[in-house]
Nucleic acid binder design. Sequence first.
DNA 1: AGGCTCGGAGTGCTTCCGGT
DNA 2: ACCGGAAGCACTCCGAGCCT
Length: 191
Amino acid sequence: MNETDNIEDRIAARLKARREELALSLADLAERSAVSKAMISRIERREASPTAALLGRLCAGLDITLSGLMAAVEDKSLVLLTAAAQPVWRDPETGFERRAVTPAGTGSSVEIVQATLPPGARISYPALPSGAYDQHILGVSGVLRFSSGDDHFSIAAGDCLHCALDQPHVFTNQTGEPCRYLVIIARRKAR
DNA sequence: AGGCTCGGAGTGCTTCCGGT
DNA sequence: ACCGGAAGCACTCCGAGCCT
């Protein structure tokens, strides 16, 4: 069985389930995410492979993080998630690789993702609902360029940046070497 | 109860655009 | 030139409401 196909099947199923959970029609989600309803329909039926940017917009429209989406498609029976079992998703457009490190189904509000950004690649994400999430970015290897609003940072191995997700943000690798980093996303508790 | 109309939801087809 | 992602338009399907 093809592992990539499998995860994409589950992403498609999870996107549809989340949309139905919110009682949104294709047109509703299209308006919220700025993705056409025809495209959303195709993604849900696995007729199209969404890019990271597109998935980010869909997640924003569904009020979830990309991490939340990925965690939801993991096998909930696993507590110890071995490296071999961790779902890996690759953006067909940029080659950006995303490994969901944290096991699903633990009830934890923290999600950890190991990301690898190829040389020259750029990934942008829209803002998420204000105050719902915050994020730490820990450099592992290479140098990551992170921009949020008017703020720009270079994150090298061992550097750790904290930021909220209530502004559009961009990850860029401006170097000639792959850049690896960890993203730790915490869901803030409702008051 | 059965038939008709209308509107919303989802899908198919076509076109455009950017990258290779 | 070719390919794949994305959007727009038009079509079909289906359920609700209305009329006879």
